[in-house]
Write a protein that binds this DNA or RNA. Structure first.
Lengths: 335, 335
DNA sequence: TTGTACGCGTTATCAA
DNA sequence: TTGATAACGCGTACAA
């Protein structure tokens, strides 16, 4: 038998309804009464039973985070950001990490909704663009916020960075370094961010008056191995690129490995650029230039939008990115 | 208004209690009745409301995973392993990732228990050895399973690898490679695994008839930066080691960086060994020899023990490890 | 501003 | 082997 509202109400000498009012920050509670209740809550270490609240009320005080991303670092940062924001509201985060390409995605999410009655969901790529999921949520009237969505097709809020502009900036940085043949390694097709980054790459080339060479533009799978393969391909070309820009960190690391396998010196023989969450900061060799997206901030804002009042307007909240240039002081030493 | 047991009972022509019996796999249900109920459940896509089950019954069908680890990869693998096992039992995992050294650890865990009434908890290092936490759980009668605990001081089940034997094997591997001065970079004090790994290192030295040189034994913080610092220290010695064994992957990567900063060739000038979850496989340069602990397997088994019947005996379940030697074919090319 | 009575959807108890 | 009914702990509606 654990502490209940009843115990608190007895301790404070008020009705259970009054305790409930205080817990939910409702109006029409006398200051003195409120303080007495709060004292009783503290004294008894009372914490409301989530199941009972959920069953009786309209809210469950739980939100779900649906994460299907190849990078554990990304998933972790998302969880931390969402959790930070939830704590402030006394809401619990239910994290649902997925291994890539789960077949039962729709069923799983439906199950989550039915069994837990979450107050809302946060969706990350590529699920945030999964038409079936979006339809189901809309039809069921479940609130959701999307992180880094492709297009704004649904009446839901979202958080994002300007991937196209970021890729443009990165490519511009390489161009400014004198590179003219710049390879690109894209990510998976179902990730909208991959396409956005490719557009930015093409933007910068066009702005510099350079024709895009299709042979320099490859598809990867957002994994280390796919980056290594694409890098090896690009570097095996007769007229090989002097710089390679990969759509995420892991593939950039793969490109670095491919370069090392060929005995290339960095950055003299090849400049490598990546795009991501800075998971590999420090692990891979400099020089590696990256666009860093602040995943935790994206997550925090997503939760912030999700926890907003029902009548809050739909909002697309943008977050900044950084161009991080790592010095190449050490790589020459090994060369 | 969503589907409830009442709807199912009407559809199947039985009482709600009978439906409940089928859902909970209770005995004393006629085969025909059971099948009719199951058909109705499927037809109506019924999924029981977790809040109601939790409120009415003795179980909440939820378990908590308390993870405070510097490596996002470790946290992710733990979550996937636990989740896999939970799914089979229709139990939900509530993941609680922590940033290092949260002050409110005890309160947070107590809050989790009070609000969600979890059926049990899985604790990872260093929390699995946190005396205050263990006491609270025991006092409250909350089931828990520990992953990689220090000593078996509590009457709870646990999963682990033999860290001491693993470190002994790794050090033996280095000794077999002809190394006589082998540096060690330990992890944080509150991680029992760190001490276990140090003992294994010392075991192997002693078995080889070598005196342990305290100057070769450093303390790190399980982070990349601490590994880089300890590595730089060790390599600055007049009589520097020819091999360095770090108590985890991230520190090993730091040691690698320190070596590169000094222009050392690997593995000719220095052999680097790590211990961990293989998070960095492919990211850092070979050659790096590691002990790989199967985190997902540890997690799966922890959940398996937690979900066992109440009267199941306390069990300490051991899982194997791998010694992974990466070839050094590429590093010479860059040297 | 406060309190009373009812119901949320499921499991537990006990009777049939 | 089944069913009726009372909890579970809280929020809601409405009355005071």
């Amino acid at each position: 038998m654990r502490t209940t509202i009843k115990d608190v109400s007895r301790e404070a000498g008020v009705s259970i309804k009054t305790v409930s009012r205080v817990l939910n920050n409702e109006r029409y509670v006398g200051t003195a009464t409120r303080e007495r209740v709060q004292a009783a809550v503290a004294a008894l270490h009372f914490r409301p039973n989530l199941a009972a609240r959920s069953l009786a009320g309209r809210r469950s005080f739980q939100i779900g985070l649906i994460c299907d991303n190849p990078s554990p670092y990304y998933v972790y940062e998302m969880q931390m950001g969402v959790r930070d924001r939830c704590e402030a509201d006394g809401v619990r985060m239910i994290a649902q990490p997925y291994d890539r390409g789960s077949e039962r995605l729709l069923d799983d999410i439906a199950g989550l909704i039915d069994t837990t009655r979450v107050d809302g969901l946060i969706l990350t790529p590529p699920i945030c663009d999964h038409v079936g999921v979006l339809e189901m949520l809309t039809q069921r009237g479940v609130r959701f916020v999307r992180v880094s969505p492709g297009a704004v097709t649904s009446p839901a809020s979202s958080t994002f960075i300007d991937n196209r502009a970021a890729a443009r900036a990165m490519t511009g940085h390489l161009l400014a370094g004198g590179h003219r043949r710049i390879g690109f390694v894209g990510g998976l097709r179902d990730y909208a961010t991959s396409a956005q980054r490719r557009l930015g790459y093409q933007d910068a080339l066009a702005a510099a008056g350079l024709a895009a060479d299709p042979a320099l533009d490859r598809d990867g799978g957002y994994t280390f191995a796919s980056g290594a393969a694409a890098g090896a391909d690009l570097l095996a070309m007769r007229d090989r690129p002097s710089a390679i820009f990969a759509a995420n960190d892991e593939m950039a690391a793969g490109v670095l490995t491919a370069a090392h396998r060929l005995g290339l010196r960095l950055p003299q023989d090849l400049a490598v650029a990546g795009f991501g969450d800075d998971a590999l900061a420090g692990y891979v060799w400099p020089p590696l230039t990256t666009i860093r997206q602040p995943v935790r901030l994206l997550a925090w804002n997503a939760a912030d939008l999700l926890l907003a009042p029902d009548d809050a307007p739909v909002e697309a909240r943008e977050v900044g990115f950084d161009l991080v240039v790592r010095e190449s002081t050490t790589s020459e030493a090994t060369a």
